[in-house]
């Protein structure tokens, strides 16, 4: 397991702390994804956990042991970066055997273990190659084998698959799932891809130098803790209005909602966060209660997403109902399905 408490870190020369009072616990054998806007300090958090950067305050625990005072190489964790960083002067096998070598394991044992790790990433015959002879996907698999050969208690992944094309990335995701099933390492993964974050048991959203929310991805989609969290996750339309008695009133009209504070009946300013799957856009102008004009059209998988201007500068994104054909500038109607989540301003 891995736990951090009250971490604070400021980049040299920066005015504002990149991490401020960050606490996070990742249970044994589980995987947590860290998401956040670029520059929010995701990679910095991993560097501080790993010991490559020293925090100004706070503690890091690996398996209940405090590792604050240990150098990076003695913390029982390893990290994969976005680049594979294979060592060009070593063969693939000796790259994977590197951790054993620096730990003083005798060469033949280190190589035998390296070979086992290469087999786990399904590259059993690549040991004698040079890193330059590998493809991009193979390089990152060797990097994974090399990380596993270090037998880490905690595996830190800093967007290691983001430079790969979609197909290779899916291969790596499958491989990671297999590694998790076999070795059950504790994993912390930084990513900006929500589909990738979905591989994790929990997702922690980093915003404004703090962990804004830490929950399974389904919970984040259903009940984001704030507008900022919703923006990081993406796919929400923000509708400002007032909340009274579990109803939200705005330019869209009054809609039943869910909110964190259902018992509070006082009328207050709040933002309704509507997921685009909750909005059905129809070409039939008699269909829904919300009338508007299509501003732009995009695709999310096989579903078409329309951004609809509904007046007062308000725009709502929703799925175009199956069987409907709409074009930009067209007058459409929209309706909200289910009860959107609402947060106070």
């Amino acid at each position: 397991m891995m736990r951090v408490e009250g971490l604070r870190f400021t980049h040299p020369g920066a005015e504002k702390a990149t991490l401020d009072d960050v606490s996070l616990a990742v249970p044994e054998g589980s995987m947590t994804a860290i998401v956040g806007a670029s520059g929010s300090g995701k990679s910095t958090l991993l560097r501080v956990i790993s010991g490559l950067n020293r925090p100004e305050a706070g503690h890091v625990y690996v398996d209940e042991g405090r590792v604050d005072d240990l150098p990076p190489e003695r913390r029982g964790l390893t990290m994969m970066f976005q680049k594979p960083h294979l060592f060009d002067h070593l063969s693939v096998l000796d790259n994977v055997a590197f951790a054993g070598d620096v730990a003083g394991v005798n060469r033949s044992d280190a190589r035998a273990e390296a070979q086992r790790c290469l087999e786990m990433v399904r590259l059993p015959d690549m040991g004698r190659r040079r890193p330059r002879q590998l493809s991009g996907g193979q390089e990152q698999r060797v990097a994974l084998a090399r990380a596993l050969a270090a037998k880490p208690h905690v595996l830190l992944l800093d967007e290691p698959f983001s430079a790969l094309d979609t197909e290779l990335r899916h291969d790596m995701h499958a491989l990671l799932g297999q590694v998790r099933a076999e070795l059950k390492p504790t994993i912390v993964m930084v990513t900006h891809d929500m589909a990738e974050a979905g591989l994790a048991d929990d997702v922690a959203v980093l915003h404004d130098s703090k962990i804004a929310q830490h929950a399974p991805l389904a919970a984040l989609f259903a009940e984001p803790a704030s507008v900022q969290v919703a923006r990081v996750i993406g796919g929400f339309s923000e509708v400002v209005g007032t909340c009274t008695d579990a109803h939200h009133t705005s330019a869209l009209g009054a809609w039943p909602i869910r909110c964190a504070d259902d018992g509070n009946s006082a009328s207050r300013q709040s933002v309704m966060l509507v997921r685009r799957e909750q909005v059905q856009v129809s070409a039939d102008t008699a269909q829904g209660p919300i009338a508007g004009q299509v501003r732009s059209l995009t695709w999310a998988g096989s579903r078409q997403i329309a951004r609809v201007a509904v007046g007062d500068g308000l725009e709502v994104a929703g799925e175009v109902s199956l069987g409907n054909t709409v074009s930009v500038g067209q007058q459409v109607t929209a309706s909200i399905v289910g009860q959107p989540w609402c947060v106070d301003v």
Binding site: E73, H85, F98, V102
Partner: peptide, 19 residues
Amino acid sequence: QIEDQARMLGASATQATRK
């Protein structure tokens, strides 16, 4: 970052530079 990578595989600062 190649030296960070070596550290992350268990190499001390000296080992990372040397190896």
